[in-house]
Design a binder for these strands. Structure first.
Lengths: 259, 259
DNA sequence: ATTGTTTGGTTGTCTATACAAGTTGCTATA
DNA sequence: TATAGCAACTTGTATAGACAACCAAACAAT
C-alpha cells in the first residue's frame, strides 16, 4: 500500500477544485451536490479524503450535509466574525468608508461622583472628557461621550484625534496595553441633542452603548457612553450556546442583566 | 469488527471530557497536551476518533497542534466562558427571579421565503413558528418570535415550553448539540403589538435581537427575533480590544455593520 | 567543536472496510 | 386503496494500518 503524502495534500487539491466548480456555478444554488461515493469515483481517492475536502467547504459555508438525504449547495455565505473589539476607524476602513470625527468638547475635568465610582478612581485622579461625533462618509453615525484616565491619555492628548483611531494611537505611542472591555447595550430614543448632532428626527430609536475598557493590569482606561444610529449600525455578537453546566471557574455569566 | 455508533458519538464524549479537563486546568496553559497515541491508549479508541475530538477543541481555540512537536494548550480562552449563550430561564434563576412564559402561537408552517433564506433551508423543510412572551416575576419582559427547524424540534414539541428552557430540553432529550449563535442587535420603538404584549407605552425604546443559532454540524436550528424591554434588560458583552492585526483566517469581521 | 546521521517521537495524510442512522421510493400484503 | 416493510441510497461514526513530514535529541564522524 504505497501512499505518498504530497506537498499539497490531495484533500486540499480536491477542495480547491470543488470550490472552483461551486463558484463557477456548476451546481445550482440549493441543488444536490455529488455524494461521497460519486466523488470517490471521479477523483479515485478514498472516502476519508473526500470527506476531508467536503468538510472544508462546509466549514466555509458553501455546503450543507443532511444525513440520509445528501449534500447541498448553500445559498449564500454567512459571515463569521471574531469578537475582537476593533475601533470605528478600522471598521469603516474595512467597509471602504472613510471615517472621520469632529471633536465637540475636550477638556480635563474632575470626574463627577458617578463617573468616579464606575471607573473606580481614587480622590485626586483626573479624567479627560471628550465628546466626539463620528462620521462615515460625512454622515454622522455616532455620538461618543468618553472619559479617559488622564495619566494614561496624556501622551496622545495633543495628537490628531479627528482622523485617527484612539486605540491605535495608544497602541503605537504608549506602552499601555488594553485588557478587555465590558459593554452594555440599551435602547433609547433621540432627544434634543441627539437629533441635532446626528441629524435625525426626535424619537428615532438609537442604541446606547456603555463601555468600560480596562488596561491589561486592571485599571480603567476609559468609560464611555456612545449613541449609535440604529438604522445605520447594528451590533453583531457571536456566542457559544448552551452546552452543559460546568461552572468550571464560576465566572458569572451575564449576557443579559437586570437593571 | 463490531462498531456501534452510539446516540452520542464517542468523539463527542471524548471532546467533552477533554474540554472539562482543560477548563479545570489539568494541563497548564501553554503546556503539552497528550499525544494522539497516548490518548488512544487512555480512551481505548482508534486514532481517528481521537483526532476528531481534538479537532473540535482546536476549532474552538483551546488547543494548537504543531507538526513534529506536539499539541499544546492555548493561553487565553478569550471570553469563551463569559459569552456563553444561556437561556432566559437560567438567567432569571441566577437572579432569583421566577421565569415563566406564555405561548401566544405555536404551529408548524412552511417557512416564508425570507426565513427560508436566512435559515438556509431546502425546499420541503418545515419550521415550527413559536411566539412567546416571557415573564420575570409575572412582568412581561420579552417577546420572542422564533422559527425552529421542525426535524430537530419535533422531539420536544409537546413538552412544557412555558416553564422550561428550550435549550435545556434540547440538550436533555435529544442528541442535537448547538454550535454557535450569531446575534444582531438593533433598536426599535414599541408599536401596537409590542406595547400591548409588553404593557408599555407606544414609542418606548426597545431592543430587537435577531438571532441565528446553528447546530454543531452547521445546520440552522433556530432563527428568532426577540424584542426586549430596554428599561428592564440590557445586553452585556465582553470583548478583547485592539491588539494587533492578525486576521486569523482572513474572515471578514463585522462587529458592527452597515445596513 | 562542528557537522552529519540516525533514531524515535510527534502530527499529517491516505487507504480500505464496516456498520449505524436517516431518507426515499418501490413493492407485497392486508 | 392504504400501509407496512423492504431495498437502495445517502451521510455519520469508528477501526486498523501504513507511510510522509517534521522535530529534537542522542550519537557518530570529521
Amino acid at each position: 500500500m504505497n501512499v505518498q503524502a504530497p506537498l499539497i495534500p490531495k484533500y486540499y487539491q480536491i477542495y480547491e477544485e470543488l470550490l472552483a466548480m461551486i463558484r463557477r456555478g456548476d451546481f445550482g444554488e440549493g441543488d444536490r451536490f455529488p455524494s461521497d461515493t460519486e466523488l470517490v469515483k471521479t477523483f479515485t481517492v478514498s472516502r476519508g479524503t473526500i470527506r476531508e475536502a467536503v468538510k472544508l467547504l462546509i466549514q466555509q459555508g458553501y455546503l450543507v450535509r443532511e444525513q440520509g438525504k445528501g449534500t447541498f449547495v448553500t445559498y449564500q455565505k454567512i459571515t463569521q466574525d471574531s469578537d475582537k473589539l476593533i475601533g470605528f476607524t478600522e471598521l469603516m476602513a474595512q467597509n471602504g468608508i472613510k471615517a472621520s470625527a469632529k471633536i465637540i468638547e475636550q477638556k480635563v475635568v474632575e470626574p463627577a461622583p458617578n463617573i468616579r465610582q464606575v471607573m473606580n478612581l481614587s480622590e485626586g485622579q483626573k479624567v479627560v472628557r471628550i465628546v466626539r461625533v463620528r462620521y462615515g462618509d460625512k454622515e454622522p453615525l455616532i455620538i461618543e461621550r468618553s472619559f479617559f484616565l488622564l495619566s494614561l491619555f496624556e501622551p496622545i492628548m495633543n495628537m490628531d484625534l479627528e482622523n485617527n483611531s484612539i486605540f491605535e494611537l495608544i497602541y503605537k505611542h504608549t506602552t499601555t496595553r488594553l485588557g478587555f472591555a465590558v459593554q452594555r447595550i440599551e435602547a433609547i430614543v433621540a432627544g434634543q441633542s441627539e437629533s441635532k448632532l446626528l441629524k435625525i428626527d426626535l424619537g428615532t430609536p438609537l442604541l446606547l452603548m456603555k463601555r468600560f475598557i480596562q488596561t491589561n493590569n486592571g485599571t480603567y482606561f476609559q468609560y464611555s457612553e456612545d449613541v449609535y444610529r440604529s438604522d445605520r449600525i447594528t451590533f453583531t455578537t457571536k456566542t457559544v450556546p448552551y452546552e452543559e453546566h460546568h461552572d468550571s471557574l464560576g465566572l458569572p455569566l451575564d449576557l443579559m442583566k437586570n437593571d
